[in-house]
Simulated scan of single mutants.
Amino acid sequence: MTIQQQRSQAIDVLRGLTVALMIMVNMPGSPATTYAPFLHADWHGLTLTDLVFPTFMFVVGTALSFTLEKYQGMGEAAVLKKICTRTALIFLCGFLMYWFPFVGVDGGSVSMLPLSGTRVFGVLQRIALGYCAAALLLHYSGAKGAVVFALLALFGYWALLAGFGDYTLAGNAQRKLDLLVLGEAHMYHGEGVAFDPEGILSTLPSIVNVLAGYFAGRLVRRLGASYESIARLMMAGAVLALLALAWSSVFPLNKKLWTSSYTLITIAIDLGVLALLLYVIDLRGQRGWTYFFEVFGRNTLFIYLLSELVATLFFLFRIGGLSVFDWVYLNLFRPWAGTYNGTLLWAAVYMLGCWLVGYLLDRRKIYIKL
């Protein structure tokens, strides 16, 4: 069965939309000044923000549906080198992002920040591992092997969490494994205790999001932007949504644990959004608005990394005792837009600043691939 060579504009727009949302949800301030959809669920539950990262994993998979075909004419050594090099580069960028700015100032003296307190896992690291696992699975075991892995990963992860802990912040098996392997100093502390939402064990079900993106991308390439492809995407999404909601009664929807029910519901939503974009963009031909998101989709990982590094500097440097981030919000946005709208507008303006960088790169045909 032949695979079409043209890229779907809907897939590119989905990628760009995901990056735009990811930048925005990473910028808002405290829960007291942020609209609920732009915050993660406290623990169990689902918000708009909880959909962003798994969609990022999903679009990594859609990209694989194009790149894996290019590997077929390469020797095994070249394929392994390509996959492992890209994995290492993305993982290293994520690690260095958490170590950034590399130096600290204490009492007027400058010293290197110790690696002993640097977080090991995170967003880019999970993207790297998800890409690597999915690429190797699909290259060496094909679609059937990937489906078998997905089933084993989802049910195996459920068994591990149920058998070696509970579904609480303090008692889950993921935290126990990370404490054992990584140590408390190398974990995320934003939950009040050492707990990493991008830890070792929950990487397992996140790979399924990448595989789902691959199969969706392959379907669109094979059938094109047609009513048949839209119908299949929507039917698959509906089935997965029903399974996720049923499963959530015993294995709750939880982004921070990346539960199996959460994996399925996020894939279901991504399939529905992709189907909608195919209909609006490719079938109805409504493309006047798409370039904005295509800019984000053309330098995806670079723009995300840039947004995180600049945000770190905004929180690091201070004006009148306030971080630059807080000073801008308190002096330029909150006085006229209000508490919640000011936070939202500041995040939107920051996202637009990142878009401008992407636009300038696109105008010059510069595409930075990690």
Rank of each mutant, 00 (worst) to 15 (best):
R232M: 01
L301R: 14
I230M: 12
F333I: 12
W247V: 13
G288V: 07
V239S: 03
A337N: 03
Y262P: 00
E228A: 01
L316T: 13
V324C: 08
V310I: 13
I267Y: 08
A311W: 01
Y279K: 06
F315R: 13
V295C: 05
D326H: 14
Y291E: 14
F296A: 07
L330M: 07
G321L: 13
V328Y: 14
V328A: 07
G224S: 01
S261M: 05
L274H: 09
R222W: 05
V310R: 07
W327Y: 15
S226N: 07
L278G: 12
N331Y: 15
I303K: 02
V324E: 02
R232W: 02
S323D: 01
Y291Q: 14
F315D: 04
I303T: 11
L243M: 11
L223G: 04
F251P: 00
A238N: 10
S260Q: 07
V250E: 04
K256N: 11
Y329P: 14
V239Q: 04
V295D: 03
K255H: 07
G342V: 08
T290P: 15
I303M: 09
V250R: 05
I267D: 06
N299F: 15
V295G: 03
F251T: 01
L305W: 13
V328W: 14
S248G: 04
K255E: 01
R318F: 15
L306E: 02
T263E: 00
M234P: 13
L283I: 13
T339L: 07
I303E: 07
V250H: 09
I319N: 07
L330R: 05
L274P: 12
L313P: 12
I265D: 05
S260N: 07
A238G: 10
L240V: 12
S261Q: 03
